[in-house]
Design a protein around this nucleic acid. Structure first.
Lengths: 233, 233
DNA sequence: TCGGCGTGAGTAATCACTCACCTGTCCGAT
DNA sequence: ATCGGACAGGTGAGTGATTACTCACGCCGA
C-alpha cells in the first residue's frame, strides 16, 4: 500500500480524518477497521500501531470534535443587542443550512456523529451541548434582554436559554432532513429556506415583526458573512 | 429454547416486535440476528424460516411502521380554526415529549428508526414525511389561514406548510435530546418544557401573544387529552 | 546498526445463514 | 379406535465469510 514514510503525528491525523469520514457515513458498528485502513491508504496493522482499538479511535475522534471554534468565539465578543441576536441566529442558520447542501463535509460529519451519539448513550452530545451552552448563554441572554428593553422583543418565558435550544433544534433537524443525497423533505420555496427558518426562530424567541424584517433585510457585514458561527455542532 | 407451538402469523409479529426493539437500540449494523432471536426467545433457525434475510426483516419493520395512526386521523377532521391549530401543535408537542420521559417505548423506537434513516439513505423518513405532510397539510394550512383572518395570527411567509415542518423539527429534536437514559441537554424549568415549546412554536408560526395565552391556558377537551396526535413520527 | 515506520499473513471470534432432524397435530384409511 | 404419514413449527450444530486485532519481519534514515 502506502510505502511513504512520515511522522507519527501526521499519520495519526490522517487516520483520524479518514476514520471520521467512515464513522460519520456508516456509524460505529457499520464501519470496519479494514475500511478505515483503506480510506487512510495504510495497512490495518499500522492502524493498530496508532490506536489500540477501534473504540479508542472512535473516542479520539469524538474528543477531538469537542474543541471550540475560534470563529465562533469572536462572534461571542459582540456587544449585547438585537443586532447581535439576529446575527447570531442568522449565522447559525446559515452555517448549518449551507453545510447541508454545500460540500461542507466537515459539518455534516459533526452532525452525524452528534446524532449517532443521541441514539447511543448521548455522552458526546452532552459534552457538546455543555460547551455550546457555556459559550453562547451570556451573549444570547444578554442580547435578548436588550432586545426586550429596546422594544424589539416581547419578553416570553422565564428561561431565555431554552429558547436558544429550541432554535438550535429547529436548525439541526432541518439540516438532518437535507443530509441524505436525496433529501428526506422537500420544502416549498427551498431557495428561500434560510430566511424562512430565521424568521420562524426569531418570532419564536419573541422578536416582533418589524424588528425581524428590518434586521433580516440588512446585509451581513463582510467579516461575519463567511461565518463559521454556532460551530461546535 | 421456546418449545411453545403457535401460529406462523403470531410468531411473525413477535419476531417483528423483538427485532424492532433491537434495531432501534443498536441500529441495523449493530444488531445481530442472534440477539434478535434471543429477544424473541426462539432459535436463529426459526427466525430465518420467517424472514429470508436480516435486511428483509428490517425492511418489513420499516414498512409496518409506515401505516398511519387512526387517532391522528380523527384529529384531522376538526374544522379549521385557531383552536384546531393550537390543539394540533399542543397534541404533537405533548405526544412526543411525554413519549420521551414516559416509558412509551413505541414512539421512542419510531424516532430512533427515523433518525437512523436520516443517517442512511433517508428513504424511510421520506415515506413518513410524505404521509405526515399529506395528512396534516389541509388542516394545518386551512387553520392557519383562518387564524390570520380572525386576527389571531399575522400572515408570515408564503409557505405555511414549511412552518409546520419547522415546528415538527423543533419537537423531534427536543425529544431526541431526551432519548438517552441521561438526557443530552438539561433544560431550565423542565417541568414546564411542554408549555415553553408550544409557545415557541406558536409564536414561530405567527400567532400573537394574546391568542397563544388564551388558547394554551384552556384545558384540552378530554377526548383529545390522551391524544396520540401527530403520530406516524 | 539501531529504532521506528510500515506491511501482510496470520488468529480466534463472530457474523449471517443453512440444514438435517425432532416433535406434536391433524386426518383419512383401516 | 387406531394406525400412519404428511406437514407444520421448532431446534442446534453446523457453514464459509468477515470481524477486530496480532505478530514476525522488511525497510530506511540517523
Amino acid at each position: 500500500m502506502n510505502t511513504l514514510r512520515m511522522t507519527s503525528d501526521l499519520r495519526r491525523e490522517l487516520i483520524l480524518a479518514a476514520a471520521k469520514r467512515c464513522f460519520a457515513r456508516t456509524g460505529f458498528a457499520g464501519t470496519t477497521t479494514k475500511s478505515i485502513a483503506a480510506a487512510a491508504s495504510i495497512s490495518e496493522g499500522l492502524l493498530f500501531k496508532h490506536f489500540p482499538s477501534k473504540s479508542a479511535l472512535y473516542a479520539a475522534i469524538l474528543a477531538e470534535e469537542c474543541e471550540a471554534d475560534p470563529a465562533l468565539v469572536t462572534l461571542l465578543g459582540l456587544p449585547p443587542s438585537t443586532e447581535t441576536l439576529v446575527v447570531l441566529i442568522r449565522g447559525m442558520v446559515g452555517h448549518f443550512l449551507q453545510a447541508s447542501d454545500a460540500p461542507d463535509e466537515e459539518e455534516a460529519q459533526r452532525l452525524r456523529l452528534m446524532v449517532i451519539s443521541h441514539l447511543d448513550d448521548g455522552e458526546f452530545s452532552r459534552l457538546l451541548y455543555d460547551k455550546i451552552g457555556e459559550l453562547i448563554a451570556p451573549v444570547f441572554t444578554a442580547s435578548l434582554q436588550r432586545a426586550v428593553e429596546t422594544g424589539d422583543a416581547s419578553k416570553v418565558g422565564r428561561e431565555p436559554l431554552n429558547l436558544f435550544w429550541f432554535a438550535h433544534h429547529t436548525v439541526l433537524m432541518t439540516m438532518l432532513t437535507r443530509l441524505p443525497v436525496v433529501p428526506c423533505l422537500s420544502y416549498a420555496d427551498a431557495p428561500d429556506l434560510e430566511r424562512q427558518v430565521c424568521e420562524f426562530i426569531l418570532r419564536g424567541i419573541g422578536l416582533n415583526e418589524t424588528a425581524i424584517a428590518s434586521h433580516l433585510d440588512r446585509e451581513l457585514s463582510p467579516e461575519l458573512m463567511p461565518l463559521k458561527a454556532a460551530e461546535s455542532a
